[in-house]
Design a protein around this nucleic acid. Structure first.
Lengths: 141, 141
DNA sequence: TGACTCACGTCAACATCTTGACATATGCTG
DNA sequence: CAGCATATGTCAAGATGTTGACGTGAGTCA
């Protein structure tokens, strides 16, 4: 029974950690006039310019519909631009978007450094690997 | 630089694991006509009967307003009942609620067991402790 | 070539959660 | 006791995300 309790408790603390991280990122990004989702989108585009709507949605773990309206907002504020070349529109950061992202990235890095303060480099690698293993175990079948 | 990338990546895989768990739980709970939030609420009440609205909200990491309307739904379907004794209404499971929860708990336990398949007991304890440490590090200040 | 399948973009409807606001009750403090 | 800060329940509004549905291009195969 304590086994069952621990199992459910892992899901519980997973949610707890996620909510805490989300709240901390939200607060840090507010000064940069970005939401967490918007930041995630910009960060993706910085690493891999030219992604399409659906690719960005996958990378951010939201539906393509949600990414669609997110991109509409980011385009209207000129943080990203769409290249209407081929069949599917490909997106890249504008200069202004890249500038915004630079500051926001620092703020986010500070938050996550705070979260990882208790761990040394080896423990961080292990935690990373463990979380990946959790996600992949759930994706099986 | 790989240090910074790893830092941000931990947040990334944390979100990835959370989304995967949420989706798996949602699918498992659909057969029991419960949402994840409703299940969380019922599980709390099973372990600690007599909690108030705000206490339940804290335990589930949502706002009291969200818990308020969640409880309204659960009351309308007779899964929980409110004890309008003192100043603050205290909630308990109905027989029907307890019955529903029993089945749902098994489904959720199966999902989480699937998530934790890659780990032995010692690794599970470590993962639990690590996630708690993350949440608490973020709560500092 | 024509039919089928599939992925993508997009519109609309709906659900859920959050923030803001306000009234009320509780407890502390001078 | 009066006053103030705090915590709670509750209503209303807004933001964000999901599911469902539809049209359209691209690739596959007989």
């Amino acid at each position: 029974m304590s086994q069952v309790d621990l199992d459910t408790a892992v899901g519980y603390v997973l949610r707890r950690a996620t909510v805490a991280l989300r709240a901390a990122m939200d607060a840090a990004l507010r000064e940069h006039d970005l939401t967490v989702s918007q930041y995630s989108c910009l960060e993706q585009l910085a690493h891999r310019p030219g992604l399409t709507n659906t690719e960005l949605a996958r990378g951010t773990f939201v539906s393509r519909q949600a990414m669609h309206q997110l991109l509409a907002t980011l385009k209207s504020t000129d943080l990203v631009q769409g290249d209407e070349g081929g069949r599917h529109e490909r997106f890249t950061l504008t200069d202004d978007g890249a500038r915004h992202l630079t500051g926001a990235s620092k703020a986010v890095a500070a938050v996550q450094e705070r979260m990882l303060t208790p761990f040394d480099a080896e423990q961080r690698r292990r935690l990373y690997a463990d979380l990946v293993a959790c996600a992949e175990a759930l994706s099986q079948q």
